[in-house]
Amino acid sequence: MSAAKVFTKPASMTDKIMHFCPGCTHGIIQRLVAEVIDELDIRENTIAVGPVGCAVFCYDYWDVDFHQASHGRAPAVATGVKRVHPDKVVFSLQGDGDIAAIGTTEIVHAAARGEKISCLFVNNSIYGMTGGQMAPTTIVGQKTTTTPGGRDSNMAGYPVKLTEMLAVLDGTAYSARVSVHNPANVIKAKKVIKKAFEVQIKGEGFAIVEILSTCPTNWGLSPVESIKWLEENILPYFPIGEFKTPGEVSR
């Protein structure tokens, strides 16, 4: 007789009720990170660095030591933390505006230095916290409060494929994009997040994982419609997959 498996809250999560909007997939991502921390048994050995944006309260949900960062600067703060505690696991979580607009410099140079940190990047193609403005990852044609007629590439350019960009840097050890819009992808996403932590633990270098996420509130869609919209609009532009794995050096 096999032992019954009971679905429980990860030990690395607090009891705090999440504040995310209904249907937003951010909560899944927060949970996956906690599950990975549990499975690697690193809760007492981990320092998280948070974003400014929808996940600004991530420290309410993860029961680990936590360091705040200003908007865009999480990789720099994480660098400071990791240099002081090279034996600890240091990871950051940032949204698309945080990492791919205001904080582009910090993420590029953390990667270029081969900083031994794991950077998680939640891409929902919009500024959620501030109420739905255009993000650096907003799809061409996507309506936001600052692109009311849809993003016009002639005026507002094109979405930034940050994770592919980072893959070409020699300092990047691991670069991958995942999605959490259905159960199969959630399982895949967790494996990739875990790998990003393992890359750090093995001392292999810098790891970036982009996680595609939905924003029903600011997309103006129901949760179910949001999943469909992500599949039809975001996935074709931001393909999921591993762009670089440890051992590869780009040319």
Partner: peptide, 18 residues
């Protein structure tokens, strides 16, 4: 660092780390 902004934020992280 790559900029003064990054430098002070590295200081932020190192100071917070004790």
């Amino acid at each position: 660092a790559e900029s003064e902004i990054s430098a002070i934020n590295m200081v932020f992280g190192a100071a917070g780390s004790g």
